[in-house]
Design a protein around this nucleic acid. Structure first.
Lengths: 139, 139
DNA sequence: TTTCAACCTATTTTGTCAATAGGTTTTAAG
DNA sequence: CTTAAAACCTATTGACAAAATAGGTTGAAA
């Protein structure tokens, strides 16, 4: 299950992509539009900023904006960062110490296959695919 | 993330498929082989039995055995039952009340696609695929 | 120099998962 | 028919992570 943090993060990225236009957007604006408390939203924006998916600017005229074009963000980028990895089991996490039963584990192939299925799908969807813009209307 | 319950359940199903040969296998045997406490294992076997993936028999000579051939169990069957569903978000769970924002939700397509990717993969792997048997040796 | 807004650290609350404990019923065998 | 074996059932505890809140700090711009 994707946690609240990851789901909100995706909504926030869409929000900024749609409303930003290259300008900085304030946290409280996003909070109102998305119906999330400012404080909780803040904890999510910290993660996105530290992960370089957003850039934050303080002071008057400050806020958050994207660091690159919507086409360049994949769902995997956003969700891996905010969920702290997407691996279905701990032993497949990035940087996990190799499991001692690695060579005899009969369930490992399932988890590896599942991991690949999830990753492959999420790499194939970008933020641009979710945004309301003329290009997205067919006929 | 697949929980301990689901991971153990899969190991248990493999254990019974490999060691059963159509006979009943006692809980304590499985517990020792798999290194799981009898009590915790019991809570998992209850789920598998109530879900008709296993059949249990009490008294002397009792234990658990499969209800059908290993080829007929998909990973989706086993994991959906023990995890209480595999949907990446609550609104896609079986029997979930339809979300009021269903028609305007910009993230829904992602979750639907992810759900399909996960399900499609897990339907394609059966318990038989994970079992040690002569047929599984190539060359 | 003042205001604004992101940034940071810590704490509380909540809920689920994991694990344990003890007693009950059914089955088969002596 | 009695006894032992084994699954079955209900409840409780413990541990941990996620969710949410609170208040103070730093940096940027007007």
């Amino acid at each position: 299950m994707i946690s609240t943090r990851g789901r909100y993060a995706l909504r926030v990225m869409i929000d900024i992509a749609e409303n930003g236009n290259g300008n900085y957007i304030r946290l409280d604006e996003i909070a109102i539009r998305q119906g999330i408390s400012e404080k909780y939203l803040e904890s999510i924006l910290v993660i996105l900023t530290r992960g370089n998916l957003l850039i934050g600017l303080r002071g008057k005229g400050g806020g958050y904006k994207l660091t690159k074009a919507p086409e360049e963000y994949t769902m995997k980028d956003i969700l891996t960062l905010t969920e702290g990895g997407l691996a279905p089991v701990a032993c497949l996490k990035d940087g996990a110490e190799p499991c001692v039963k690695k060579n005899i584990c009969k369930t490992l192939p399932v988890w590896q296959g599942l991991n690949k299925a999830i990753t492959d799908y999420l790499v194939g969807v970008t933020l641009a695919d979710l945004i309301d813009k003329p290009d997205n209307y067919s006929i």
